[in-house]
Design a protein around this nucleic acid. Structure first.
Lengths: 351, 351
DNA sequence: CCACTAGATTTGATCGATCAAACCTTTTCG
DNA sequence: CGAAAAGGTTTGATCGATCAAATCTAGTGG
């Protein structure tokens, strides 16, 4: 029943440009042209070749093309190690989105692992030189990341998911990145809570310095300073900094309560922290996490969603930009996240 | 500082077998032999070639080799769509493990997506014909899956993660699979609870028929019939079947309690169900989930862990088996899962 | 002492597609 | 009317590695 899917050439050699050309009465190069620069071929000829391609079920041999053109239409991305716990699913989600978007554009995603940044460079070099991969997507880049420097140095195209924190990226036009605006995310969350009538909103975040962490904190701070009516001193008191993790989040909030500090709601830098807070305070106090991981969805934790599909799209767009377009198009893309509200107010009027 | 990593040939053409041969004073074929069949080359010559390879930083051009050998050392795997929620992380974890194991063996993992099984077949065909990929790993196979039939039909090597439920697989020696023994998992969980003194242990699983689901249920049933001392009738009462999901799990247990059925502990077919149960019964009643997802770890839910590293290893081993070894080695691999205990007994003596 | 074999290495051909340049028509225009 | 240009298509060469067969060298036995 499914046999119908099988092509015309069961076990024999697959058709080549030559075979197609023979059937269409043209040369191999014309077939190649139909495939790669259709505009130079006379329409009638093109039609004939195209039907021959369809008849034979011809598919261009990827490796042969790569050998000749020295490019692969394949993008390399390193798979983070599992150590990430809950938040690892952001990276996984991005990978999903990237694969889907890549598929649409006829690109492939090749995975690899590396033990450390230098090992990663080694791998990248290997894949690039073997024409296996012609561009890379980097994630979890840190300040002064050796990878970005090396890639720029060697003229290998890449895009990072994440900003080059602390670097004046405008100085290097070859550095392309896409990121989600964390500040907007926490600001949205905070403003939402303020609008619901909460005033004393806690920020549960990571220790400084942390590019992503400081960015997210600033969104909360911005909204609070503008609309909460609290003093700086009061805000400082509501700002918590702990290492990421469920228990860390729980203990931080427990400590705050024990210090006798009152609060109406909590905005967090991650779902792990959010879950910790939620487990402690229960459903009466609104908690908003970050990343909208499956966990948040499962336990009904409000969260901030990173639009990974849009990120993936932007990444591929920036990668595909040739030097000609480079000038006109922005080399950076900052995308707004979305607030997902899951908490319910019980017996308390907003305002 | 990192510049040291960069190779000798910065911008010029990369070295080829010919360059290496020239430096070592041998022909290109000898270089190729050193790489592919070292045993036919005289040891001294080999050493000379190897040092030349190192000196030049030579790497074999993957696409060229593929064109010639018609094989790619690349394994294709379809990335499941995100719809899986919590349990999707099993697939992601497997992917991680697979990538790592593949790396060790010099294999690559190429991702792709597909809208449905037939589309997947189309993609597989394309990749196989282009010598992009020479073997596939299939996941989430169902009874009478069109993919397996097609792959066998076309002689494309593949291994599935998951048994071909309901099929007499011994009939087809080309069908290789690896799976985790779900029955052992639930049996371990149930036996553990029994040993701790629980008697009335609930099984919270999925509706029949479901290969995986029925398998997991049978482990619970087996242990209970042997050691719980309960009658069949009583066991039937403790066996719940609902669609997967947190709320489903919660409601099922709520219903059970409302019917006035007493119970000491709960064994579940998934972490989603387990989380639902846990949220309802609280920490007093032990709950054991399945898959040991990040969620389970985060909320302290006991769970059954699938040893994905071992699975990945087995998958690659079965894939790599040539027809010669096929006869001596098993074509199937059933791996035992591991129980992760996270629940704490409070004020109740075991026994 | 030479034919003969096994071992080691080299040469010629090829995988399939694309680049670069040559080639043929037809059209344009001084 | 003929040269030059533009449009289409074809031929020759190449990408880098490996296969298949040829060649060379040293060792063996009759």
């Amino acid at each position: 029943m499914v046999k119908a899917v099988s092509g015309p050439n069961r076990d024999s050699r697959l058709p080549t440009v030559l075979d197609v050309g023979r059937l269409a009465g043209v040369s191999r190069q014309t077939v190649s042209n139909v495939l790669n620069s259709p505009d130079v071929v006379k329409p009638e000829t093109r039609a004939r070749v195209e039907s021959a391609i369809a008849d034979l079920g011809y598919r261009t041999h990827a490796s042969a093309r790569r050998l000749r053109t020295r490019r692969s239409s394949t993008i390399g991305i390193r798979l983070d190690s599992i150590t990430n716990g809950i938040s690892g699913s952001v990276h996984d989600g991005f990978l999903h989105a990237l694969t889907e978007q890549a598929d649409v554009r006829g690109l492939r995603i090749l995975l690899f692992t590396a033990t450390d940044p230098l090992d990663e460079i080694r791998q990248i070099r290997r894949m690039h030189e073997g024409s296996d991969v012609d561009a890379f997507v980097l994630t979890s880049t840190k300040f002064g990341d050796p990878r970005t420097e090396w890639l720029i140095d060697h003229g290998i195209p890449f895009v990072t998911f994440g900003r080059p924190w602390g670097v004046d990226d405008t100085s290097d036009p070859t550095y392309r990145w896409v990121d989600v605006d964390g500040r907007v995310g926490t600001r949205l969350a905070t403003e939402h809570l303020l609008a619901e009538g909460d005033r004393r909103i806690v920020y549960l975040g990571w220790p400084s310095p942390s590019g992503t962490g400081d960015d997210r904190r600033s969104g909360w701070r911005e909204a609070m300073e503008r609309s909460s009516g609290l003093t700086r001193r009061e805000l400082d008191e509501l700002e918590l900094r702990v290492e990421d993790g469920v228990s860390g989040g729980r203990e931080a909030i427990r400590g705050l309560a024990q210090r006798g500090v009152a609060f109406d709601a909590i905005v967090c830098a991650s779902d792990s922290l959010g879950l910790g807070a939620l487990l402690l305070v229960g459903p009466d106090i609104p908690v908003i996490g970050y990343d909208n991981t499956p966990v948040a969805e499962a336990v009904g934790l409000s969260s901030i969603e990173q639009p990974l599909g849009a990120v993936a799209e932007a990444v591929l767009e920036l990668l595909g930009a040739t030097s000609a377009e480079d000038i006109s198009r922005a080399r950076h893309r900052l995308i707004d996240p979305r607030l997902i509200v899951r908490h319910r107010r019980i017996g308390r009027a907003p305002g």
